[in-house]
């Protein structure tokens, strides 16, 4: 069942704009993320990392190439199929993007409201357990404004994992955090994902967190370049 890799990209190209303004950002990218693998995507600004992440996350329609994510071919997939796929992916953004008018528990439960198999009690129960797992059991009824930056991002981690995703996509989750809390958040994410066998694809510029990766992929000018020497994972 888990033979095929969660993410399998072959010859993915993407360009913004039309005609003379056409600006390619991805050129024939091949990338594989294996089951349970934690892959960090690095590279300078404008190298296409973020576009790649939005394509894998089914947030953007494909143009060229083949991308099979969690068994779903994305080239030619319509909005409904992409929406269904997004429900099986956990997203963590640069900012926590929590709903300010909901408590931490309700925010996490939002990830479960799309699952018709769960009732309100089951949702809140699982959300509470997930908050325990990120060490915020005592803050479940706080709204985001009452939490610190690191705590909010941990709620976002809990939300991303609450729906039992088959893949976690993270975009510079430590960018808005100080060194200590940033490191805690990504290590927590790594531990939780690893214990559940969920692969992670994370875009980051942050050299302090490179050690969590199984593999580091560097991008430049829309292409995957060789992994930087000495950055191999443990």
């Amino acid at each position: 069942m888990r033979e095929e890799p969660p993410v399998l990209l072959r010859g993915v190209s993407y360009a913004y704009g039309e005609g003379a303004l056409r600006r390619p950002v991805l050129r024939a990218v091949d990338l594989t993320v294996g089951p349970g693998e934690i892959v960090l995507l690095t590279g300078p600004s404008g190298s296409g990392k973020t576009t790649l992440l939005t394509l894998i996350g089914a947030l953007r329609a494909m143009q060229e190439g083949s991308a099979v994510v969690l068994g779903q071919e994305l080239n030619g997939a319509g909005e409904a199929r992409r929406m269904a796929l997004r429900r099986r992916i956990g997203f963590i953004f640069q900012h926590h993007n929590l709903l300010g008018f909901l408590t931490a528990r309700q925010n996490v439960a939002m990830a479960l409201e799309l699952d018709p198999a769960l009732d309100e009690r089951a949702r809140l129960g699982r959300a509470g357990a997930m908050l325990e797992a990120v060490g915020l059991g005592g803050h479940a009824d706080h709204v985001p404004a009452q939490l610190s930056g690191g705590q909010r991002q941990r709620v976002a981690v809990a939300r991303a994992l609450a729906g039992s995703p088959g893949l976690v996509l993270a975009d510079e989750p430590t960018a808005a955090l100080d060194r200590a809390s940033g490191g805690e958040v990504v290590r927590l994410l790594r531990d939780l994902a690893r214990s559940r066998g969920v692969p992670i694809l994370m875009v980051t510029h942050d050299p302090r967190i490179l050690d969590i990766a199984d593999r580091i992929v560097a991008m430049e000018d829309g292409r995957i370049v060789e992994a930087p020497a000495g950055a191999a994972a443990d």
Binding site: G71, A80, M83, A84, R87, R88, G163, S164, G166, R196
Partner: peptide, 12 residues
């Protein structure tokens, strides 16, 4: 693989 979570593939 995750025991819950909506849908196995296509339609939600």
């Amino acid at each position: 693989p995750p025991p819950y979570g909506p849908g196995g593939g296509g339609e939600a």
